[in-house]
Nucleic acid binder design. Structure first.
Length: 263
DNA sequence: GATATATGTGTAC
DNA sequence: TACACCTATATCG
């Protein structure tokens, strides 16, 4: 159940468990047997997130490319004296180091990329709000000349990467922008506010390992519903008016018609 | 146990 | 625009 913050958090958590080590790579479920064999026994040099994609770079030049999609999940376990933890459910890949095992269940994408394929992948992902090397201006250039609704463009990972369905509604509400406002109606200043808010919120998401868009909310001291402003809600926390729910880019979006300007 | 739903993306029509 | 992908979980019965 990931947006960009989940993947960056996983990269951060898994790095000390796996990076620098020779990994035992298996496919307990069997559907990635070939790829696992290609990576097995190789040294993992680095783990890096690009938007919602996770790359495990190996010394051979190959990279394991994981995209969780809607269903995928990581499970991490420490190696114990009596061996590794039993795989839970359909484990597509297990990456085991001397100290830990990382299991990946139900990923949308699970493949081995050669260096050229990796370059191609990174090339088609837009600037990632969580990466220091992101060039926000590339996203604005696309938004400014598009007639598509900003609510669609925000979710388009080739425009900008990392934002998913919950953050979309939350960011647009916080910035008082209507999801149906065309990209071309978004001024550069408004875009900068939107980008900065996305960066801020996803950074909080990485730090807290949870989506939090309400000021001061903490995962340990609140229920999910208290951490978001508008996603899944029926009433606008700002004006008290009714929230409208509709589909945009085939996903549910929440908006307050009174608070969010159409541009 | 069955069913609906989910923080996603790629492809075909 | 619809569906395929394909797994976990929540909710209902």
């Amino acid at each position: 159940m990931p947006e960009g913050h989940t993947i960056h958090r996983e990269a951060r958590d898994q790095r000390p468990m796996l990076a620098g080590q020779i990994l035992t790579v298996t496919s307990p479920q069997g559907r990635f047997a070939e790829g696992a064999a290609r990576l097995n026994g190789q040294r993992c040099l680095a783990i890096e997130a690009y938007g919602k994609h996770l790359l495990y770079r190996f010394a051979t030049g190959d990279a394991l490319h994981i995209h969780l999609g809607l269903f995928g999940i990581f499970r991490k376990s420490e190696k114990r004296e009596d061996g590794e933890a039993e795989p839970k459910g359909a484990v597509r890949v297990r990456l085991a180091s001397s100290s830990h095992a990382v299991d990946i269940n139900g990923p949308n994408t699970c493949e081995v990329l050669d260096p050229a394929q990796e370059v191609s992948l990174i090339g088609r992902i837009g600037p990632d709000v969580l990466r220091a090397d992101a060039v926000a201006q590339k996203a604005y250039a696309k938004i400014a000349k598009s007639r598509a609704p900003i609510g669609v463009l925000l979710m388009d990972q080739s425009v900008m990467a990392g934002v998913g369905n919950i953050y979309r509604s939350e960011i647009l509400w916080r910035q008082k922008i209507h999801p149906e406002a065309p990209g071309s109606s978004i001024s550069e200043v408004v875009f900068q506010g939107l980008w900065a808010d996305a960066v801020q919120l996803l950074e909080i998401g990485v730090r807290e390992n949870a989506i939090i868009t309400v000021e001061g909310a903490l995962p340990s001291r609140s229920k999910y519903g208290e951490r978001v402003n508008i996603f899944g809600k029926t009433q606008c926390p700002a004006c008290g008016g009714a929230i409208r729910v509709f589909e945009l880019a085939s996903r549910r979006v929440y908006a307050c018609e009174a608070c969010q300007a159409r541009g």
